[in-house]
Design a protein around this nucleic acid. Structure first.
Length: 671
DNA sequence: TTTAGGG
DNA sequence: CCCTAAA
């Protein structure tokens, strides 16, 4: 007899959404090959990608001869197929307040007026319907336009300590395509280097086995077709099945519905979030958008490792130096103690199940007879966050802020906490039955939370800054830096600094490609140790250059090609606005006004972008590629372009009235 | 250094 | 994005 229930959480914490499956229609088309292996995905994101599909399967009762207090139930194995992790890119944070808003919407426009606006996170899968509970909700959601591939992965519980000591996470991307510094996909793999605590894998696995739905990806074969550029020949095989085989376990392949706990309608509205403790919360405040310093040279693959594994924060000085009016800080509360308790209100279903079908080869006769508790975890709750942002910040920046904050918290590794009826199950040695979780009951009010692994360190780190875990920093010389907002372009600047997949509306085609091996205790910045990538930029004509060769241009010789970082909609908007104000041909001014703090955007970049924007605006939508730019912006581009060309042409005719299409910029943008 | 344009 | 002539 297997109990399966859907867990719905409604609390102040963040929830990792359930990711439904669907057609992979919106997969990114533009995959560049400029960079190799530079991005990692933090565990949280991985979980986000598989949330809702996680199946916890344990024997009940289980041997309880473990040392008490020891976190025995930690992840020792986690493997996700790369193509499935494309979903991650689709994940984003949505802001809902009686609806969703575009990134370009000012926070104040959607009701983020007061400084004490409380932001909570709600159920994502019901994002659209769970909005507005008296305050805005931040919902981690996924882009509906991008479908979710199936995720194969296994979560094998083991000892936490073991995980930390024995598990290794290797980071590296198998694919060299990265756009905007964001991995298009990743493969996350926590390998158990050693056997379980009992000296063999079987023990470790059997004691606590968490199998995530392992249904084969719907479009695994399609992946290569859709993404020819991804066809680098790297097999996608190193995923779950392989690992299970390594462990001598077979995969429990439930149906989607089963594994995701959706055997019954799941439209139960989330419970209202717990009233926030305003005293503990930071208020929304100005947001400093100074993030990364990019120099001429862009970081290479190896440059990423550190920032991803460990949040890198600049000194307070860095954060507050540039500006005082717009700053955004995150504050992570005591995650372990304060994670709000949520009651699950999901539906409960029971079903017959071969008790040990998935472990046939290894289970003993006794074990095969015990009941199993099967839990469909619809979502994980992640730690509560406090965010401060200025009213003038855009919704997009808010979203990214949340993404960044969550990433910062969980990127360094996480643990899974289990709460039953509001009470944290701390004794890992207890059997599920002893803990009150059994097929006969106890599944009510069971929730799972993601907890930072090293709260102390991280807390300290987060005190001053929040890191973006995936974006490259500039070639080791300059740690990531937050930068103050330039006019209203903090959003744009922020977008570039955001490590996590940006909102779909901004980067629908962003590709995530990365293989990551997590080294929980690896603090060493890879980028300082690893030699710079040989030649990430396969520049025509320079492909044959040898290390000692000096035939290349000085720039190329000293500075590898920069990572391609497509402009976000927010940036485009900023650019358009700036050009409206300043006109074309004044790229330096545009840069200074609108992108001063986006170090990676040079005036040449802006000029180039404008050029491409004009081109894009002139071609048919069908011919456009990449992230769609709102037609409204393109219209403005054309109008502005026409205006300024005419204006400059008739510069000596002041009487000529400017077209209405290029109105003067809003005062707000001019500070 | 910045602009402008081709690649 | 890169490269570079030209300003």
């Amino acid at each position: 007899m297997v109990l399966q229930r859907r867990l719905d959480y409604g609390f102040n914490g963040y929830q990792v959404p359930f990711l439904p499956r669907g057609p992979r229609s919106a997969r990114g088309k533009r995959h560049t090959c400029e960079k190799a292996a530079e991005d990692q995905m933090c565990p949280f994101e991985l979980l986000a990608s598989v949330a809702g599909k996680l199946l916890v399967e344990e024997n009940s009762p289980e041997p309880s001869n473990e040392r008490k207090g020891d976190s025995k139930h930690a992840f020792t194995k986690y493997n996700v197929k790369e193509e499935e992790l494309d979903e991650v890119k689709a994940s984003n944070v949505g802001v809902y307040d009686q609806g969703s808003y575009n990134d370009g919407t000012l926070a104040s426009e959607v009701g983020f007026r007061g400084q004490t606006q409380i932001v909570t996170v709600k159920e994502c899968s019901q994002a659209s319907s769970s909005a507005s509970l008296g305050h805005s909700s931040i919902i981690i959601k996924r882009d509906p336009s991008v479908d979710v591939a199936s995720v194969e992965e296994s979560l094998v519980n083991g000892s936490k300590d073991e995980f930390e000591r024995q598990s290794t996470v290797t980071a590296g991307s198998r694919h060299s395509k990265v756009e905007d510094g964001i991995p298009s996909s990743l493969r996350f793999e926590c390998r158990q280097n050693k056997m379980g605590a009992h000296g063999n894998v079987s023990d470790a696995c059997l004691e606590d086995l968490m199998n995530v739905d392992t249904k084969a990806p719907l479009l695994s074969s399609e992946s290569s077709a859709d993404e020819p550029l991804h066809g680098d020949g790297i097999p996608h095989s190193t995923s779950f099945p392989k690992c299970l085989n390594d462990l001598g376990l077979s995969v429990d392949r439930d149906d989607d519905e089963k594994s995701s706990g959706c055997t019954q309608p799941c439209n139960t509205p989330s419970k209202p979030a717990r009233p926030p403790r305003t005293g503990d919360r930071q208020k929304l405040q100005s947001f400093s958008s100074k993030f990364w310093k990019f120099g001429r040279t862009e970081p290479k693959d190896e440059d990423f490792c550190n920032t991803e594994l460990k949040p890198v924060f600049r000194s307070r000085k860095m954060v507050y130096t540039r500006q005082r009016t717009q700053r955004c800080t995150f504050k992570r509360r005591k995650l372990f103690e304060r994670v709000p308790v949520s009651m699950s209100d999901g539906t409960l279903t029971t079903e017959e199940n071969g008790a040990s079908s998935s472990l046939t080869g290894l289970k003993t006769a006794y074990e095969s007879e015990v009941f199993q508790v099967k839990l469909g975890i619809k979502s994980f709750k992640v730690p509560e966050l406090l965010i401060k942002m200025p009213e003038t910040a855009t919704v997009g920046s808010l979203k990214r802020t949340v993404v960044e904050a969550v990433t910062a918290i969980l990127c360094g590794g996480f643990r899974v906490g289990v709460q039953l009826q509001g009470k944290k199950l701390r004794d890992d040695s207890k059997s599920l039955t002893q803990a009150g979780i059994s097929h006969g009951g106890g599944l009510d009010n069971l929730s799972f939370t993601l907890e930072p692994k090293a709260p102390q360190t991280r807390k300290q780190l987060t005190a001053n800054k929040v890191t973006t875990c995936f974006l490259p920093a500039c070639d080791g010389s300059d740690p990531p830096t937050r930068f103050p907002a330039a006019l209203s372009l903090d959003d744009a600047a922020f977008a570039d600094s955001c490590t996590v997949p940006l909102p779909s509306e901004s980067l629908p085609c962003t590709v995530w490609r990365a293989t990551m091996t997590l080294l929980p205790h690896l603090p060493t910045p890879c980028r300082q140790k690893t030699p710079r990538l040989q030649s990430s930029g396969h520049r025509p004509g320079h492909g044959d250059r040898s290390p000692g060769r000096r035939s290349v241009s000085p720039a190329q010789r000293d500075c590898p090609r920069r990572i391609r970082r497509p402009f976000s909609v927010s940036e485009v908007e900023a650019l358009v606005q700036a050009v409206e104000d300043l006109g074309t041909g004044r790229w330096r001014d545009v840069k200074l006004c609108a992108f001063e703090n986006a170090k990676h955007r040079t005036y040449v970049d802006l000029k180039d972008k404008w050029k491409t924007l004009v081109h894009t605006a002139k071609i048919s939508p069908q011919q456009r590629r990449g992230e769609p730019v709102p037609q409204e912006l393109l219209d403005r581009v054309l109008a502005v372009n026409a205006f300024w060309s005419q204006h400059q042409a008739k510069l000596h005719h002041p009487k000529h009235p400017p077209p209405p299409e290029a109105p003067p910029p809003p005062p707000s943008l001019l500070a």
